[in-house]
Simulated assay, not measured.
Amino acid sequence: MTNADRKIGCLLGLAVGDALGAAVEFMSPGSFPPVTKYRGNGPHRLDPGEWTDDTSMALALADSILSVGWDLNDQAERYLKWYRNGEYSVNGRCFDIGNATRAALQRYERSADGSTSGDPSSYSSGNGSIMRLAPVPMVAAALLSKDVARLVELAAESSLPTHASEQCLSACRYFALVLAGLINGEDRDVVLASDWAPLETLRKLHPLHPEVEAVAEGSFRQLHPPQIEGSGYVVKSLEAALWAMHDAADFREAVLRAVNLGDDADTTGAVCGQLAGAYWGWSGTPDDLRDGLAQSDMLLDFAQRLSETSAENF
């Protein structure tokens, strides 16, 4: 497994988890037959293997990075094109958008300032910025051993156009750090340890929000459903994805654990899929999930180009 394979897995894993969870989004855990493969219909009447806003926004972020480097206004402009025109969507329509994201993009239309359009209020702490994060650690993974401060700065900045609460910024910093470690081939147990050296560096730079700190300390190891929830709240979403991933035997087990939590299943799947893809790589993703993913050639093209891009050039 190569570094590029793990980077590609991070973005494509996001889309796989998103597509697996799409059919059971908004459904209570235990109220549906367990997801074992791609399934059609669901709240958005998608075909099996089609994905939702998580992947669309990740593609918009990826396209911005590939086109202009690092520019929050450009990122926000591309999210706006998805919201208003359906660009980056699997079917040409924006059929699923979180309330915080919608409100933030409407603010951006008025202000034209992506650094201030996200709501900093704690009650606006949805998972909309961790669900799309993959492109950031993909291009910034090399900074883990050189410049942790810059790595986590990029992660937090990427949240600002839509989610500016301290919970969201803190979750993005921690999540990007973990993904960068996995992309660089570090062992899962090492990266998820509460005393991992880069995590200690992060704590000195930006003390984690207390709820995110509890996750980093290992809450996902001690809790089980229903305490683990596929919630839209950023902290619970991150915790659920780590719970699904931390001792799973393989990619499939991890993402299916995540989506079968129900509720915000597509996003729990997308967050877990980033972790699983960064750990097992695209080569470690089961063939049926690779082959059944909608528009996989387009997604793979984005992922391959991102894998050749470095944030050190920003």
Score class of each variant (00 low, 15 high):
N3V: 00
L14F: 02
G17I: 02
G17K: 06
E25Y: 07
M27A: 14
F32L: 12
L46Y: 04
G49V: 03
W51E: 09
T55L: 08
L59Q: 02
L61V: 01
A62C: 08
L80A: 10
L80R: 08
D96W: 05
L105G: 02
R110C: 13
S115G: 15
S122Y: 15
Y123I: 12
L133N: 00
P135F: 00
P135Y: 06
P137I: 01
A155C: 10
E157W: 09
T162F: 02
T162N: 10
A164P: 05
Q167T: 03
Q167P: 00
C168R: 07
L169Y: 07
S170Y: 05
A171C: 14
R173K: 11
I183R: 01
V191Y: 10
L199C: 01
T201E: 13
K204T: 09
P207M: 13
P207A: 10
E213W: 04
E213G: 08
V215K: 00
E217C: 05
F220K: 04
L223E: 10
S237G: 08
E239S: 07
M245L: 14
R252H: 12
E253G: 01
R257V: 08
R257I: 03
L261F: 01
D263F: 04
D266E: 13
A278F: 02
T285I: 15
D287N: 13
D287F: 05
R290E: 12
L293I: 13
Q295C: 13
D301V: 10
Q304K: 15
T309S: 08
T309H: 11
N313G: 05
